[in-house]
Amino acid sequence: MVPFMTDLTASPVTDPLSIYRYRDGLYAVDLVTAALSLDFFTWLAAHPSTLAEICVHHGFKERPADVMMTLFVTNSWVRCNGSTFHLTPTGQEHLCSGSEWFLGPYYASLHDRPIARDFIQVLRTGKPAGWSGDKAAFDWHKAMEQEDFARSFTAAMDCRGRYLAQALAKKLDLTGRNRLLDIGAGSGIYACSIAAQHPHLSAVVFDQAPVDRIAGKLITERGCADRVTVTTGNMFDGLPTDCDVHLFSNVLHDWDVNEVRQLLAISHASLPPGGLLIIHDAFINADKTGPLHVAEYSCLLMHSTQGKCYSTGEYAALLTEAGFTPGEYQDTVVGRGFMLATRG
Rank of each mutant, 00 (worst) to 15 (best):
V2G: 11
L8K: 06
L8H: 14
S11N: 08
P16E: 09
S18P: 01
R21W: 09
Y22R: 08
A35M: 14
T42N: 03
P48L: 14
T50D: 12
H58N: 11
H58D: 11
G59D: 09
T70H: 06
W77E: 06
T84E: 13
P89R: 08
T90V: 14
H94R: 02
H94A: 05
S97E: 09
F102R: 04
F119R: 00
I120Y: 11
T125R: 01
G130V: 07
W131I: 15
D134R: 13
A136C: 10
D139A: 08
A143S: 12
M144W: 05
D148G: 01
F149A: 04
A150T: 04
R151D: 07
F153D: 10
T154V: 13
A156R: 10
A169L: 04
K170L: 11
K171S: 15
L181M: 05
G186W: 02
S193N: 00
I194H: 05
I194M: 08
H198L: 13
L201M: 14
S202Q: 15
D207H: 03
Q208H: 13
I214H: 00
T220P: 03
E221W: 06
A225P: 02
T231V: 12
D244L: 10
L252S: 00
E259F: 07
A265Y: 04
H268I: 04
A269I: 08
S298G: 09
M302Q: 02
M302L: 08
M302R: 01
G313P: 03
G313K: 05
Y315Q: 03
T320L: 13
G323P: 05
V333W: 07
G335F: 04
A341M: 04
R343E: 11
